[in-house]
Design a protein around this nucleic acid. Structure first.
Lengths: 242, 242
DNA sequence: CGTATTATTGACTCCATTCAAAGATAGTGG
DNA sequence: CCACTATCTTTGAATGGAGTCAATAATACG
């Protein structure tokens, strides 16, 4: 393994400030070094480009270094369903362990990712047994996120919107961004698609939350005025049944 | 390891006729033997009993040998959300790799399960590397099922019901049961909870599908009269957008 | 057999969609 | 710089699908 190869393919996870949320989360520094050797150099995508496509052969797990993306699924009629928004430090590809990816991921802005290639996962898991556990942990998290979304999808429109914004705010905070002000990289149509709402309803719900002094909206710019109030909007729910 | 111990704790996966859908799916017979040694003896639960509870410490992955169960999540208000129905050969517990189970599983009738204990997963994965891959595969499948449910939750009530029944029919067939007649182990309330419908709507949709000559309903007994027709009910969707 | 629970059916209400139109924003070329 | 278009967003009014309420019917249970 010559120096040129290393420069080209080896990215130290220590150079990336996302260790605490990305794959290395539960690993020791020695283990991270082993992981770093397996990780493919970071790759840059422009807005609108696919990181991977539904139906593609599984090539590995990707981690976002910077930028954001949308996780989508196309149904039999070709309709797009936005399953989630992905932020820096978040992983993707766990939908593909059954040989082929079952979803697509599209960059919402300029995006850089690094990849843990499929062919290396086996060997690295031998060398770093705790990595297996970490990957299961992440996979488990993806399951729980999907299930949470299913529960949220049953809430009325205003609560769904409140959850979406709170969730984004919290995730941004965990990643070192401001939780109180951010630019949604999504159109109203994409938000509606993701939340299962018509674009008109998206407009109305944003206005509603603004009227309640919980947020302020200017185009894609969102300011969270009252995060606790926003959370109460959905976390109370119908407190009738116990 | 004496004979008594083996009788008590060792269940050969070869004795169970669910190899093709359960954990052993992709493993060789030698690997299955190794797996068999790690699997804990089967355990029996009565209707209404918990296999594991949301918040419990992760103890392992369970496989249903016989009977059925419901996978549920309790929200902050204590409301129950039925995320899925689990059938023989199906696995549960992938929601727990993050130290604690995020869901509960309750037996819908007399249920027998076998368990791959957490403390053995590490060692067995060392001995049987292909098992790691198999577990990731199953975990991946759980993700995809959740995401499919999210998409289905956007469909109108009749299509949701049609999907639910078709899906059950297909899964029962894959497990060697009749796909054309089965007894739902769920009350109308549970069906409604799972599909996000009021119990009255569940009644109405079952009647609708019966009027369309796609099924016949007698209490909990369901006969699938026209499986293809049932599938068409939802797979066409709005064919307007391409 | 009577009571309690569960399921069905009908009438009414309400939330979110659809339809329709106006307003705002970004990009283009004169 | 402004007009002009295309796209996106907001707002209002009407429609419709599923929920709620209420009553009846069927089933399970003691």
């Amino acid at each position: 393994m010559n120096k040129n190869f290393q420069e080209k393919y080896q990215v130290s996870c220590e150079n990336c400030n996302l260790d605490s949320i990305c794959i290395p989360r539960g690993l020791s520094s020695d283990e991270i070094k082993n992981l770093s050797l397996a990780v493919r150099k970071k790759n840059v995508f422009n807005k609108g480009e696919f990181i991977y496509r539904q139906g593609d052969k599984f090539t590995g797990i990707f981690a976002i270094q910077s930028g954001s993306a949308k996780l989508i699924n196309y149904d039999l009629s070709g309709n797009e369903h936005i399953l989630n928004i992905l932020l820096p430090g978040e992983l993707m590809g766990f939908d593909g362990f059954n040989d082929h990816y079952q979803c697509s991921v599209i960059a919402l802005d300029t995006l850089s990712v690094c990849e843990l290639p499929a062919e290396r996962i086996d060997e690295i898991c031998q060398k770093v047994p705790t990595l297996v556990k970490e990957l299961f942990r992440h996979s488990s998290e993806k399951i729980n996120i999907s299930q949470e979304h299913l529960i949220v999808s049953r809430l009325p429109a205003d609560q769904r919107m409140a959850f979406f914004l709170s969730d984004l705010s919290i995730r941004l905070k965990n990643r070192g961004f401001s939780p109180y002000e951010f630019n949604l990289p999504l159109s109203r149509e994409d938000i509606g698609n993701h939340l299962g709402l018509a674009i008109e309803t998206v407009s109305r719900m944003l206005r509603l939350l603004q009227n309640k002094k919980l947020i302020t909206v200017h185009q894609k710019n969102i300011k969270i005025v009252d995060l606790n109030g926003l959370k109460k909007q959905y976390s109370i729910q119908n407190s009738t049944k116990l």
